[in-house]
Design a protein around this nucleic acid. Structure first.
Lengths: 219, 219
DNA sequence: ACCTGAACACCGTTCAAGT
DNA sequence: ACCTGAACACCGTTCAAGT
């Protein structure tokens, strides 16, 4: 008689499998629906068996976040440092669009997974090699990341689909008091008239920061 | 016999009182500890009586957020537009430091409280009066807010107190693999040696954005 | 060593019943 | 009109018991 049979569930569970299933649930159904019991059902085990592979739910979330960070493009290639940092920022934004629950948790969680450390190391290295001091590199990285997190989190919360934006604005216009909020009212009217599409560009703020940065301008 | 006596609890509860008590709990004990039952206990009522004044917990959170927005300084005074926007951004950051739970919720919640609408109206108005088009004003506001949200949320998550940062870095250094993460290792060494204080400045990124902005540079 | 069922101490919210 | 107690359908996590 073999030690493992079809009905023997031992060793079938791994932390990698748990993380994968958790990411699928969070991406498709929302992080707020991810419970230990639901995740266990998806994996065909009980909630408690997962505690043999992850310490608790917070630990699981950290492991999920480090996976998201693994999708960032490392700025450790050759070429102009601005291009590498722009490509990393774009890849961050795309990872966040794939995993919309991630930025909120990532920015409010202390993570020291290996992918997170690798990203920090490569990003600092890119700036150091471009001639930035360690202090200036830290400041520059912080400015770029602030924009990337802040912009993408606002973008993810955008209340309507881009192509439905004008219709939604037209519907909402009567509820904006013209005397109390004249500029907001006019901005909504301009939007409806179609003079601009209401979409602010990620690159607008990113380029303001990247063009302002130089190895010498920060003390 | 009067219709209200000492033991008659009717009419003692208002949404303002609920919001005030909820803000106190969230600010002092953390938003994750705020439950309807705990809040009710603090107000000396049962959880269910609050449902006569707020629709549900989400509604309560929206009301709390609009209060936080009421602490933003409106950029509707006279003076250079850059100064007004800088003061608004500083007041946002200070409000977030007072209410550390707020930015995460504010950036991921659709709010249309009156203070939120007033803030949007005044911020757009400041830029319009400075000669920005409605489209450019929207882009500029988005760039400034992205930085303010992103920076302050990173700051709030900063793992240690500023004055303990060097000690914490020294303690953490041995755990950073020098061969795998050379730049991160060196950055930590530089930090411990005290060549800079490891504090990135809010104004560094904000000034990059404000000096790059002008009524003509965005299409 | 790994998996499980039962239990504990919580949640937000509903509902019918009080005054 | 406003407040309440009991109940419902959940949570994350512990613990002792299985194999």
């Amino acid at each position: 008689m073999p030690t493992s049979s079809k009905s023997d569930k031992r060793r079938t569970l791994t932390s990698a499998k748990i993380i994968e299933a958790a990411l699928t649930i969070a991406d498709t159904q929302g992080i707020e629906t991810l419970s230990m019991r639901k995740l266990a059902t998806a994996l065909n085990v009980t909630a408690m068996s997962m505690y043999n592979h992850v310490a608790n739910k917070d630990d699981l979330l950290s492991l999920m976040l480090d996976h998201v960070v693994s999708e960032f493009e490392l700025p450790n290639k050759d070429g102009p440092w601005q291009d590498m940092l722009r490509r990393r920022a774009h890849s961050m934004r795309r990872a966040f669009l794939r995993h919309p629950w991630a930025p909120t948790l990532l920015i409010s969680t202390i993570t020291n997974g290996s992918h997170t450390m690798q990203d920090t190391n490569a990003t600092l290295g890119c700036l150091i090699n471009a001639g930035f001091s360690y202090a200036a590199a830290d400041w520059a990285r912080n400015a770029i990341d602030s924009h990337t997190f802040g912009y993408t989190m606002q973008e993810l919360n955008f209340p309507v689909e881009p192509d439905k934006y004008k219709a939604a604005a037209a519907h909402y216009l009567p509820e904006i008091d013209k005397d109390k909020y004249p500029y907001l009212h006019s901005a909504t009217e301009v939007l409806i008239k179609g003079e601009y599409d209401g979409i602010t560009q990620f690159d607008f703020g990113l380029d303001l920061i990247l063009s302002g940065l130089s190895p010498d301008n920060s003390q």
